[in-house]
Design a protein around this nucleic acid. Structure first.
Length: 508
RNA sequence: GGCGCAUUCGUCUAGCGGCCUAGGACAUCGCCCUCUCAAGGCGAAGACCACGGGUUCGAAUCCCGUAUGCGCUACCA
């Protein structure tokens, strides 16, 4: 059999065909991204098809969640659930007649047959094969039944499946756009089931029929399907159909090279939304797992990806999911946001994560100013409440010992706080520049000095700045002090300085 | 077990016979900046291109074998 060359040009029709038996993870969506990009790049169509043929494993709500994930990433589909299209329905459970007809066509051609074996019989057959140390495979016992035997089984009302009558000898080659020709020996594959006894199609069959009927030009899927691909090719050829172009992309693995699972921080896609990741960041990170533009480019807008994406630059080896790199992308995208965008994005996280009293009085302008201060410290939106809570609560909680440092004992701290409060109290122009001016003046006046390596003495902001930092925030790490005080406001600042002084007094 | 796919710094990758004494990025470490934490700047370290044979004037790049990893081997997808 001749192998196909990669000669498809023009608009591509690609599809994402999730099974609502669970929530797809990063790897599955990465495949969807590739398919979507290729359709958009070529000016073609992207379809979504729900493969709900496994009635036992259907998970309620999975389908909605899968579609929400696509929408969140901005992967719009031209045909599929909710939007319909000319070659629907797009739910396999609504296409049962189509699969039955096509199975019947193959039976008539002699390319498929009914198999009456029960699960128990098959299990026994496999057990015997194991005992004889033979590879387990269906031994085709129903393939060569005589018409009489067949009639007998039908008369007895035995339930049956439809199997494909695969070539028993020779080799089958199919062409993978990335990996080239892949050839397998026909003796290593058995007759796969096309229609189950409940008359639902198997994935293996439905996906062939649908891809053909839906005029899919490029099938992009995970490499776990490589072993099945020659069998699909055989079925296409039995129908006399042209095969679509096929690309098997490498798997996405966990850091220990095992399959991705929750254990490794690889969550269902939408969980990343809850953890404060931006869809643009996810998209950018995911597309670079197994695809590259060149040796330098890292950041791509959606439009740039559509323009730049080509199938030939997809890699063929598995890649490992690295949450650290995702975080870096996320932080980069957060830094690029405008104050208003950041406020919109962070708002729900503040509502969810702030103490009740702080949450009740959120003021948009104030929130926006606070977020601008912390923008470059936000790796994921989920850290926002913790990072900024002290701006919103009535009084931050902290231990008095936090106020003291290696260059500042309790006595000096206690003396410094009221004096500084007095200086700041006189300040009318509550801006970062004016605040810095007052703070620096205070440092010099009160003799906070530090010796440099060469022995010369310079003003030492450290002790005073840190004292004030902790007094107003209860933390040792915050945005720059003058900027922070400016946003915090005069009233809050003075109140907190007074509270800190009391804290020290009551401790002694 | 059988069959298949894969194999470049810890990680994502560039490389498709000479530009490679292997480039970029994340992470790591150091220095600078500095009121802290970040961010930023500069720099370091990190890959005998899994291993062994070929082919070739020349191989990370082509071929074969081995090893390792992963996948498939279901009336799952």
């Amino acid at each position: 059999m001749a192998s196909r060359s990669s000669n498809h040009t023009g608009p591509a029709r690609t599809r994402f065909a999730p099974s609502p038996t669970g929530l797809p993870h990063i790897g599955n969506y990465r495949t969807a991204i590739f398919a979507w990009l290729w359709a958009r790049h070529t000016g073609g169509q992207f379809l979504v098809r729900i493969e709900d043929t496994d009635r036992k494993r259907l998970v309620p709500g999975a389908q909605e969640s899968i579609l929400d994930g696509l929408r969140w990433l901005g992967l719009d589909w031209d045909e599929g659930p909710e939007v319909g299209g000319p070659v629907g329905p797009y739910f396999q459970s609504e296409r049962l007649d189509i699969y039955r007809e096509h199975a019947e066509m193959l039976i008539e051609k002699g390319a498929a047959y009914r198999c009456y074996c029960t699960e128990a019989e098959l299990e026994q057959m496999r057990a015997e094969q194991r005992e004889r140390k033979e590879p387990e495979h269906y031994d085709r016992r129903c393939r060569y039944l005589s018409p009489e035997q067949r009639a007998d089984r039908e008369a007895r009302g035995l339930s049956s499946v439809v199997r494909f009558a695969a070539p028993e000898t020779g080799k089958t080659t199919y062409h993978d756009l990335l990996r080239g020709d892949i050839t397998i020996d026909n003796s290593t594959i058995d007759d796969m089931i096309l229609l189950k006894s409940d008359s639902y199609p198997t994935y293996n069959f439905a996906n062939i029929v649908d891809d053909h009927l839906m005029n899919i030009t490029h099938v992009i899927r995970g490499e776990e399907y490589i072993p099945s691909a020659p069998r699909y090719a055989q079925v296409y050829r039995a129908f006399g159909w042209d095969e679509p172009e096929v690309v098997h992309v490498g798997l996405v693995l966990a850091p220990d090279r095992s399959k991705l699972s929750k254990r490794h921080g690889a969550l269902p896609l939408l969980d990343y939304r809850e953890q404060g990741y931006l869809p643009q960041a996810l998209m950018n990170y995911m597309v670079l797992l197994g695809w590259s533009y060149d040796d330098k480019a890292e950041f791509f807008t959606r439009d740039e990806l559509v323009r730049a994406f080509t199938l030939d630059r997809i890699g063929s080896s598995p890649s490992i999911f690295d949450i650290g790199r995702l975080e870096w992308f996320n932080a980069q995208y957060i830094r690029q946001m405008t104050p208003d965008e950041l406020t919109d994005a962070a708002w729900p996280f503040l509502l969810a994560g702030l103490p009740a009293d702080a949450r009740a009085t959120l003021d948009r302008a104030y929130v926006r100013a606070v977020l601008a201060l912390d923008q470059e410290r936000i790796k994921t939106l989920a850290v926002v409440p913790d990072l900024t809570a002290f701006f919103f609560v009535a009084q931050p909680e902290y231990d008095a010992s936090l106020l003291l440092g290696k260059n500042l004992d309790a006595e000096r701290a206690a003396a410094t706080l009221p004096a500084l409060a007095a200086s700041l109290g006189d300040l009318r122009d509550w801006t970062p520049e004016a605040l810095l001016h007052v703070l620096d003046g205070f440092v010099v006046q009160h003799g906070f000095i530090r010796k440099k390596a060469d022995g010369s003495e310079v003003a030492d902001r450290g002790p005073v700045f840190m004292l004030v930092r902790v007094a107003v925030s209860g933390r040792k790490e915050t945005p720059g002090l003058p900027e922070m005080l400016a946003v915090l406001g005069k009233e809050r600042t003075l109140t907190r300085l007074a509270a800190a002084a009391e804290k020290l007094a009551s401790k002694r």
